[in-house]
Design a protein around this nucleic acid. Structure first.
Lengths: 221, 221
DNA sequence: GTTTGACCAGATTTCGTATTTAGTCATATG
DNA sequence: CATATGACTAAATACGAAATCTGGTCAAAC
């Protein structure tokens, strides 16, 4: 087996297997052997990529998270108006709802993620939160966000709103959170011109943030 | 023991005991005997008031909920401006945070409420939701609420926001949800005059709603 | 150099037993 | 005679020992 190239491919195959089983059986009931068998590798091979079970499954979730943000970046690249907070929220909200593993992460679905949840939040949240606050500050600096409160405070309120919607049963329509976020956090008038200006920087910001996550994933390849 | 009067008093005493123990030890670990002993009654006496363990503890939570709404009603009576959605939310949010049992109910604290949680939501939510939508419709009819979406839809969004804030860790300051709700759901200008007009009807609405809950509680007396 | 599965310690599940508890009701009490 | 009680029972829960399973390692195979 040629070394470098197929190694990454094998890692992906293992993640695919883990992802599939995680979704079907949940963290608690999915064993490393199950994953190895489904990925057509020996059990020991899994440990050549990740140092233990937990890291493997966290990688599954990290990959899913990276993919969702890559989707988001593509959406903003395709349409600069998607850089607007309300529109971005709508896209990302729908995106998360369409990815059962992320949805489980937000809805605190203990059955599928089990003891992985706390570890997950400890690992992913801080960096993403940071990037998100930067994004808000970028908006604020361009009159695309309410300026009467610090971005960091609006971020707290925003996270609460997002969590509230994602935790809904059933989660409300994406249009409703878009509308709510628009009123709650955007200024009365949002300049399309300004939006076109910041869009590339938004893309850069999220691309950079996601690059770090990518790096971490690739360590396993 | 004179019948009617002291019977209610005894019921309250039992609820006090149950409440105390529920908070300290959680539903799963609190036995009827513990409650009876702490309330200075025989075990059988508890069953003269409630038909089973679950009903007893649901009554504890119902009473807490009733009390919180009574607080709210008093606040609106004392200050008609508190009938405004953002202000009402701020008061009720702080109220819930200050009542550990209600807080546990919203934060899905499985440890203290355990298997009681699903039953609780099934029992309390429908009626309160109904009253809340009426309240929103009352506001909408007086230009005290955004009119570009049906009240029922705003109610869904509002519940998501409230749940998101209450589920926060730690829950954000009351002022932040007030601000968020004001922007998200209120019209740009809120007429103080109109507010004074509707306040009594808001009081009546919630009083009536809570009266039903009271009735249910008193059945046990 | 790379992959693997047999292996082992520790975790988890199982299953039978002991204990606890919800709910009842015959009796005690005032 | 109406009310309150705690002894009682069936059912649930907790416990513990034995059996099973699984994460992680590593010597052997390739």
């Amino acid at each position: 087996m040629p070394p470098a190239e197929d190694r990454a491919e094998r890692a992906e195959r293992i993640l695919d297997a883990a992802s599939e089983l995680l979704l079907r059986a949940g963290y608690r009931r999915t064993t490393i052997e199950d994953v190895a068998e489904r990925a057509d590798v020996g059990k020991g091979t899994v440990y050549l990529h990740w140092k233990n079970r937990e890291e493997l499954f966290l990688a599954v979730l990290l990959r899913e998270s990276v993919r969702s943000i890559e989707d988001l970046v593509r959406a903003v690249e395709a349409d600069p108006l998607a850089a607007r907070l309300s529109r971005l929220t709508e896209i990302q909200y729908a995106n998360v709802l369409g990815r059962p593993l992320l949805r489980a992460g937000y809805a605190d679905n203990a059955d599928t993620l089990g003891k992985l949840l706390p570890k997950l939040h400890a690992k992913l949240d801080p960096r993403h939160d940071e990037a998100f606050v930067e994004y808000l500050e970028l908006l604020a600096g361009n009159d695309l966000l309410r300026a009467d409160r610090p971005a960091r405070e609006l971020a707290v309120a925003y996270q609460a709103v997002l969590h509230g919607f994602l935790g809904g049963n059933p989660p409300p329509e994406p249009a409703l959170i878009a509308d709510t976020v628009a009123h709650a956090f955007e200024p009365v008038a949002v300049s399309t011109m300004r939006l076109r200006e910041v869009a590339p920087r938004v893309v850069a910001l999220f691309t950079e943030s996601v690059a770090l996550d990518r790096k971490q994933l690739e360590r396993a390849y």
